[in-house]
Design a binder for these strands. Structure first.
Lengths: 344, 344
DNA sequence: CTGAAAGCGCTTACAG
DNA sequence: CTGAAAGCGCTTACAG
């Protein structure tokens, strides 16, 4: 099957290729009747624009790129990314943009992908996740002047636009809630420490613990997997200064931590309270259902996509703060066991 | 920043653009010394191939497309798709292919995407999931002669290549196992009935139940969400002829079903046995851990990607049968309660 | 309002 | 082994 081109349409309509191009793109320069005839013929012979030819003439690709660098085994399990992606997709597809995803093994590979996409004009812009402290991607993206929106906290680098959520405030809400219940030993099972939002959460956690005289503000670092979350929980629950409450940096680890607590013979929330970050159905399916810091992740992705489209189309865009995660108390949190109970 | 082109390289190297092209692509037609010089200059000035120009000259896009049509809320929660995609990605990125994903609302939209991709030469081939009985996508893809690999059972349509798994055999294994434990009332919470693999599972389920004199072979249809799974479980467990075992078509519904059973005061597995299909960490995190039909989904995706690359590059490729899901018995299955127990 | 033409950055026969 | 040239399918000034 030979693909029809605008030359075919031009011949059939008896006009020039240029006129066909104007008609097809809704540009001025052709009469209404010509435009209608051209569109009808295009429809009839099943014409589709050749994206390569358009791109070569400088037209946008109508594609947004996203490079994911977390290990594939996380992507398959953690609902966060798929929810984020589905939100991004919803916004993009409503504006007829496509999303190109690429999973990479490390950060140099990620940077190489941006350079290649830029060189190939494959994408009109990119969405960048999981910013690190001193992130090497930022200068590269600035240098390439590739339209970029950062999903998450950007910090000082004011040259890029970001959509972010106040993780510090959410940490404070969770710890204040646990403290109000009477907890004095709160531990945290944190995410990858080199990520900016992890650093922000850790700092906020330490500060609020200090302020409320909750001690020690122990954070164990993990890679977000259920395995790591289980390991950290096992370590915390078998330590001499066993915490009475644990705050997890994602839902998968919190669910795994719940299983570990049960397996070690602890009752939740009687012996230990658990709080998850991000509230997928996972949290509601387990027993007891998990108290969680909840936020609308698809909406978050949608907002990021909208910002990026604004940047791409040259509209004024500046960083926006998205909804702060809010605590949804469920069955996994309660007052700590009395001081006469077992343990420390 | 102006993007360098092969014209720049040609000027710097003092050769023609054609020679540069041959050198860059490892084609014969240039001396070894010229090739080295050209490559060094390209590297030095940071040249990247312009994909649009290559595509316009008929070169492949080195991109594979995948259209997902399930509702976004499923994608975010069901591990199956992300695991499949990560397996596809792993295989593609090892061969320097990218994956373009597009989420659509319905099947006409999906077909429109294929036509557009084909017209725009955006992808070299596509991976098609969730085949339906009498699937309208098949004739369109054949007509477009767009390289296609079907993930899942293809049935009679022999004109396309597929990678499939014998779901019928897996159903039989699960039911035989439950029957051997003594179950005589087994129900199934099935997926979307219009999908081919659902139909195959349903047919196999009915046949094996008939053969083993297990009755009735009731299948409740769902949309794969936890909500639907919970609803179906509630209905089954409150029916006068309450089943002693339930087989779910995915893991999310099985986990939701477990929560419902607990909430209704049933003990698992003492009162009712549950079996999940697909064995993500979810199944191991809940209490009791779920007996599951397990298979290596990333590998499945990887095989599909490899088949597609073979089709694209013109290598001989034919449908291959992938691993059959195998039963992993865990704590959610046991002998049924004795006839004197409560219920039917 | 319309036509003829250049140009985007490559690839690939075709001559030398 | 190398150079000059056509062509891929569009877009977009530039003349009419």
């Amino acid at each position: 099957m030979k693909r029809p081109t605008i030359a075919d349409i031009a011949r059939l309509a008896g006009v020039s290729k240029g006129a066909v191009s104007y008609a097809l793109n809704g540009q001025p320069g052709v009469s209404e009747s010509t435009r209608r005839r051209v569109l009808a013929i295009a429809e009839e012979i099943g014409w589709n624009p050749n994206g390569a030819a358009r791109a070569l003439s400088g037209a946008p690709s109508h594609t947004v790129g996203m490079v994911l660098h977390r290990p594939a085994r996380i992507l398959g399990v953690e609902p966060f990314f798929m929810e984020l992606i589905s939100g991004v997709e919803a916004e993009l597809s409503a504006r007829s943009y496509a999303l190109t995803l690429q999973v990479v093994a490390d950060q140099p590979a990620e940077i190489a992908v941006y350079r290649r996409w830029w060189g190939e004009r494959r994408v009109d812009g990119v969405l960048v996740c999981d910013l690190r402290v001193d992130d090497p991607r930022i200068p590269v993206l600035s240098e390439l002047t590739l339209p970029t929106v950062v999903v998450g906290m950007l910090g000082e680098s004011a040259e890029l636009v970001s959509v972010w959520s106040d993780d510090a405030a959410a940490v404070v809400e969770a710890v204040e809630y646990l403290s109000a219940l009477g907890h004095r030993h709160i531990a945290r099972v944190g995410g990858l420490p080199e990520l900016r939002h992890t650093a922000a959460r850790t700092a906020a956690f330490e500060e609020v613990c200090r302020r409320l005289e909750v001690a020690p503000a122990l954070t164990i670092s993990t890679d977000y997997t259920g395995e790591d979350g289980a390991r950290a929980t096992r370590r915390l629950l078998s330590s001499p200064r066993r915490p009475t409450a644990i705050l997890y940096d994602n839902d998968v680890m919190a669910v795994a931590g719940l299983a570990v607590a049960h397996e070690m013979g602890f009752s939740v929330p009687a012996d230990v309270s658990l709080v998850a970050w991000d509230d997928s159905v996972l949290c509601q399916l387990v027993h007891p259902p998990l108290t969680a810091l909840s936020r609308d992740i698809p909406a978050y992705g949608g907002h990021a996509a909208r910002q990026l489209l604004d940047v791409i189309t040259g509209l004024p865009a500046s960083s926006v703060q998205d909804e702060t995660a809010h605590l949804i108390p469920r069955g996994s949190t309660a007052a700590p066991p009395s001081a006469t109970g077992r343990g420390a």
